[in-house]
Amino acid sequence: MTEQEGTTAEEVLLYLIAQLVEHPDQVELEIEESDTKLSLMAKVSSEDIGRVIGKRGRVANSIRTLVRAAAVKDGVDVEVDFSD
């Protein structure tokens, strides 16, 4: 079996962010990976950060929930952070 380009967690995170922001061209993803843990830091434009985080962090938490669900397929724990 050939390995995918990115993990399922990355795919889901990038998809969600691209759908939620005004400036998808300014989205960057920093990835730190160890055997069991994946750290994803999503950078979006300062105009979009509020939208990605949402009121009381609701949107950010929903994104985290879904990325963690996706990481089950990758067999790793995932941590997701957002910045502008």
């Binding site: 969600l16 759908q19 939620l20 922001v21 005004e22 939208r51 949402g54 609701r58 949107v59 938490n61 929903s62 994104i63 929930t65 879904l66 669900a69 996706a70 089950v72 397929k73």
Partner: peptide, 24 residues
């Protein structure tokens, strides 16, 4: 099942991001 999650948690998250997508 993965998109529903325990007690429908993932589904709640999908609802939230769907709403946000539509707002944008």
């Amino acid at each position: 099942g993965l998109l529903i999650g325990p007690k429908g948690n993932h589904l709640v998250a999908i609802h939230e991001v769907s709403k946000t997508m539509l707002q944008r």
